[in-house]
Write a protein that binds this DNA or RNA. Structure first.
Length: 192
DNA sequence: TGCGAGATTACG
DNA sequence: GTAATCTCGCAA
């Protein structure tokens, strides 16, 4: 049985919340994946964050209320998705880097390239999982804590891991001093 | 007003 | 190793 996640979970810092998102479920229509890898991004003070400098059309959802989806377009080609944390006016978000596919696997495969149909190639990266779940710019700013929404976060009772692995975030050149990436030990679906 | 870098991926 | 080619910050 799945319960939608309460908005209260996201009212604090992404750094505190990110490891607790592991093992939660991300639901996109008929597709469901378990969160197995996340990264935390703060606002002012985090040089790697999109919200480090100014509010822009791209990052404005990060400054909004918690529990909403922040989707950005990058490298002229890919979408990545985050969950907004902290109260309105404070920027903070958690990047979903990898999911373990649970339901709707054929639908995910239909959106991935013909040569990337393997179960481990569907959602083992932040842009891969957005493509598999058909998350694009029109999903930016959606409320993930709203009942009956097409996109939402759910809890099926599996607790967060007691011993998640942690390390520096991937693909950045600044902010590498922070160990703000967390993943499930030994899980075959993490991005690496 | 233009250019380089970027929370990436697939393919040669 | 490189192309795909959007957004933003900063230099000119």
């Amino acid at each position: 049985m799945k319960r939608i996640v309460d908005r209260g979970l996201f009212e604090g810092s992404s750094v505190d919340i990110a490891p607790r998102l592991l093992n939660k479920l991300f639901v996109a229509g008929d597709c469901v994946g378990r969160i197995v890898e996340v990264e935390a991004y703060e606002g002012q003070g985090d040089m790697a964050s999109h919200a480090y400098r100014n509010k822009t059309p791209r990052n404005e959802v990060m400054f909004g209320p918690p529990g909403f989806l922040y989707v950005y377009f990058t490298y002229g080609m890919h979408y990545c998705m985050n969950i907004v944390c902290r109260p309105e006016g404070e920027a903070s978000a958690i990047l979903i880097r990898a999911l373990e596919p649970l339901e709707g696997i054929e639908e995910m495969q239909s959106r991935r390239p013909p040569k990337a149909q393997g179960i481990k190639q569907l959602t083992s990266g932040p842009a891969k999982l957005c493509q598999a779940l058909d998350i694009r710019g029109d999903s930016n700013g959606i409320d993930l804590c709203h009942k009956n929404a097409h996109l939402y976060l759910a809890d099926d009772g599996m607790a967060p891991p007691k011993d998640p692995l942690t390390g520096p975030r991937i693909g950045i050149t600044r902010g590498l001093e922070h160990q703000w990436r967390w993943w499930l030990k030994g899980n075959p679906y993490v991005s690496k």
